[in-house]
């Protein structure tokens, strides 16, 4: 390996090491992947740095052979590096979203509805096996998730973390949806839309419309990242109110209103009858990380 090649590889690894830290500390990283991955990436950054130094150290050692045509071979490695430094990541709420469709409003709600009837039967037949299997894996899987699991005790009983304590969502009159309780509230909303009817709700998200929505209807939506953007999804709840058409697509808003149910695509879904809509800036935590 020539000195030049060593130097190039050294710079490459150090470049990746720096770009990872830059993305994390500039906050751009949270638009690419779930922040729980940050620890792995910091470790990767340290290893890259060590690898880079290791190469650069070689540069000052003896030479074996000299070759000049290697630069082109490394071009491909520098492309992602340059993109990482320069690209302003596209938000999920624009063109990416249109490709995805939203999962809670259509597919997932549909799935959940269908399955409610079958859950009881399933529990009876395959329940025992299921439990022993899950217990094994619970021990080994990360603690966070296993404690999360306990939040949902039985069907129709949704315990959410609300203003510093665990409460049953059914006992609340006014539900303020935050990043922390977002998924739990959504689950409760779509599983038991009737249970939460007439409760007050306050929720933040961006305006998302589908072609088949009626006038003055839109979804208050959030992007969801489990690992990376490849598995991202759009989650949201329908809202309606006077003069809703004046709100532009992708505008971030906070909607306050009363919950009700409506039928969409043959499914019973929750809907917010809005009393107040406030324009808000993009929240600090743009995505929900389940």
């Amino acid at each position: 390996m020539s000195n030049r090649q060593s130097l190039l590889k050294g710079l490459l690894f150090i470049g990746y090491s720096i770009v990872i830290l830059y993305l994390i500390f500039s906050g751009k990283m949270s638009k690419y992947i779930n922040p729980k991955m940050n620890y792995y990436l910091i470790i990767a950054s340290i290893i890259f740095f060590a690898m880079g130094l290791n190469y650069i150290k070689d540069t000052f050692k003896r030479k074996h052979q000299i070759s000049l045509s290697f630069t082109r071979k490394y071009l491909i490695y520098f492309i992602p590096l340059i993109i990482m430094f320069l690209l302003q990541p596209l938000s999920l709420n624009s063109s990416l979203a249109k490709n995805k469709g939203f999962s809670m409003t259509k597919n997932q709600a549909n799935a959940i509805m269908k399955s409610i009837d079958t859950i009881d039967n399933e529990k009876k037949s395959g329940g025992d096996n299921d439990k022993s299997n899950s217990n094994n894996s619970t021990d080994k899987a990360d603690e966070d998730r296993s404690s999360d699991k306990n939040d949902l005790n039985e069907k129709g009983n949704y315990i959410i973390y609300y203003e510093g304590q665990w409460v049953n969502i059914e006992s609340l009159d006014n539900i303020i949806v935050t990043e922390e309780n977002y998924m739990k509230v959504m689950e409760a909303l779509f599983m038991e839309p009737h249970m939460l009817k007439n409760k007050s709700i306050e929720i933040t998200g961006f305006v998302l419309r589908n072609d088949d929505f009626a006038d003055n209807h839109f979804v208050v939506a959030r992007g969801l990242i489990t690992c990376c953007l490849a598995d991202s999804a759009i989650v949201g709840v329908m809202a309606t109110g006077d003069n809703f058409d004046q709100h532009e697509d992708n505008q971030w808003i906070c909607v306050k209103g009363k919950l009700d149910v409506h039928e969409y695509n043959g499914q019973i879904n929750p809907i917010i009858i809005a009393e107040e809509v406030i324009k808000t800036p993009v929240p600090e935590q743009e995505y929900i990380y389940p």
Binding site: Y16, I20, L23, M29, K31, Y32, I33, M37, L41, A44, P80, I83, M84, L87, P89, L90, L96, C227, C228, L229, A230
Partner: peptide, 11 residues
């Protein structure tokens, strides 16, 4: 954006 996201996830 998705390209970088997949890479960062895999690295």
């Amino acid at each position: 954006t998705v390209f970088i996201s997949i890479l960062l996830d895999a690295i």
